[in-house]
């Protein structure tokens, strides 16, 4: 990958603490257009927290975020979306009691010229985006609580990609899915990547990450152990990074690498 290009996203020395516990400490990661970066680590390693800072859910205590080389202030989910940063949360973050269209357009509703909700227009666009993601989806007028796990996932993905995302954060996108649906998400990731979208992929599943990611960044105890190109490290080495914090020769060590 041409490192002379400007990264799409650059998070520099990000730290955040909750009640004295340092959840993320001096973490730096970057992401280029059309690249998939896998974020790996144990539960509680700080990867979800780091990514929630990028998506505007948390505010970092210190550190900087640069978008296209420009320093960006991301204080709320709204700010992140204004920069084209969309997130698919592990919990999906869907309002269960309203339908797919209402979820996809939540916070960005289409309005008629009278200022009222334009449900027909929103349903129409929902039908288009869902036709691409999940062609068998028909339950447009039911609350999403009535949908299956895979269908709910499609709604969450649709919400993230419908608004011309440039950066997509996927937090454990396949954790709740069966094999067929997992494969479908994999296809989607490749397709989005081809469109030049940068993707942060958070996963426990090494198999997924090696399949889809170009680079990986491993976190442990809130610190980045190291980053590496997929081709430069083996799975066992990555496991060593996750479990022991040992940075192999093929990787660039971070502040969390054990000596």
């Amino acid at each position: 990958m041409a490192e002379t290009r400007t990264p799409l996203i650059e998070m520099r020395s990000i730290s955040i603490a909750f009640g004295g516990i340092k959840a993320v400490e001096e973490a730096s990661v970057d992401l280029y257009p059309g690249e998939v970066v896998g974020l790996l680590g144990h539960n509680g390693a700080g990867k979800s927290t780091l990514i929630k800072i990028l998506s505007g859910a948390y505010r970092a205590d210190s550190g900087e975020i640069h978008v296209d080389g420009q320093k960006a202030e991301i204080a709320s989910p709204r700010d992140a979306k204004a920069h084209g940063i969309e997130t698919i949360y592990q919990t999906l973050a869907l309002a269960d009691n309203v339908d797919a269209a209402a979820n996809i357009f939540l916070g960005r509703e289409k309005l008629t010229r009278w200022g009222t909700l334009d449900d027909a227009a929103m349903e129409s666009e929902t039908r288009k985006v869902m036709a691409r993601l999940n062609p068998h989806f028909r339950r447009f007028n039911e609350p999403v609580s009535a949908l299956s796990g895979g269908q709910r996932q499609s709604v969450a993905i649709a919400r993230a990609i419908h608004f011309n995302a440039r950066v997509l954060i996927m937090d454990e996108p396949t954790a709740a899915l069966g094999p067929a649906e997992t494969a479908q998400v994999g296809e989607l990731v490749k397709q989005l990547k081809a469109e030049g979208i940068g993707i942060f992929l958070i996963s426990h599943d090494l198999h997924d990450v090696f399949e889809l990611a170009d680079r990986i960044a491993v976190m442990k105890n809130g610190k980045v152990v190291g980053t590496a190109r997929i081709g430069d490290v083996t799975r066992d080495e990555v496991l060593g990074m996750i479990i022991g914090g040992k940075c192999p020769p093929g990787a660039i060590p971070g502040p969390g690498a054990s000596p």
Binding site: A57, A93, L106, G107, R108, L111, L117
Partner: peptide, 28 residues
């Protein structure tokens, strides 16, 4: 009824009730 069904405010009220965290993450 109009406020609850046809206006943005009503949509936000219901989505907050359905999942407050999701509503906040959507920028509401």
């Amino acid at each position: 009824t109009f406020v609850a069904k046809r206006m943005r405010f009503g949509r936000y009220v219901f989505s907050i009730g359905g999942n407050p965290e999701a509503a906040a993450l959507s920028g509401i």
